[in-house]
Amino acid sequence: MATIFRSSRRSPADADSADIEREAVPVQRAHSVLDLIGNTPMLEMTRITRGRIPPGVRIFAKLEGFNPGGSVKDRAARKMVEKGLESGALRPGKTIIDSTSGNTGIALAMVGAAVGYPVELVMAENVSRERKKIIEAYGAKIIFSDPMESSDGAIMLCREIIGKNPEKYFKPDQYNNEANSLAHLETTGPEIWRQTRGTITHFAATMGTSGTVMGTGRFLKSMNPEIRVIGVEPDDAMHGLEGLKHMASSIVPGIYHERELDSKIAVGTEESYEMVYTLGRDEGLLVGQSSGAAMIASLKLAQSLTDARIVTIFPDFGDKYLSTNLWIGWQEWHRKRTAVNP
């Protein structure tokens, strides 16, 4: 089997600890796009962390943008549809429906196409144009809810649509379906354990449905109860971190069990946006705002630690957001950065 070898150049952080080795990543051959979900690469953040975190701390990001649908949501979508088919809740004649602001919609549309079921998605009208087009390209139908009502409006409209025609629909219900967390318990968690050779000490992930942090955290704690699991959320109800939920002011997802978290870190929208710019310029990584938030949180977490391996999740890449508010202010930021550090 052909392999792609990652750079053999060792980062400065590797010098004192050789236990996280560089690996050959096999090129996979599959018969369904669903088999390409997961096994995403992990990247150590070496440039952006230089001089910003204590010397004994390392930060690794799992790049979920490498999933075929382009985000971490592929994992949950596949698992929820699989579970639906297994239980018979999803069977011929049914349509998959859910409320989603984007990445889950893309993932469900992709999975639906791959298993041959129609998909309908309810989302607030203000989600990015690229996402709407991508979803339509997979053959799914979009139903718009009032942008003033945010994601809670989409949830309520979706309930209403199903209420009118309950027999027609299968609703994966990512907010309340434990298969969402299970996907991470079965895939994301074990991958991180393997990729860090069991040396991970902290896991920090942004929360939307909270499936990633719940499932991954559960697995990691089962392997080593000392691992700290940290949820990352916006610092205010009024925020611009698409995909994330400010738990205190939202409909709390049924799969969210706060007691399983060791702590939470709040991040601001603007600092997260600027971190996206920094990741592009300093690491050569163009990601979405939730990855910016994850990186900000990891840097905050690192400050209080002396000897730690922090793993975080970068939920997707940034190409879906180029037309969004994320990039308002980039030119000004870039000018300032270039003036200071040409």
Binding site: K73, S101, G102, T104, S150, A154, G208, L244
Partner: peptide, 11 residues
């Protein structure tokens, strides 16, 4: 006048 957050929240 409408104030609209540039996101939908909740993935």
């Amino acid at each position: 006048i409408s104030i609209v957050p540039a996101i939908a929240g909740g993935r």
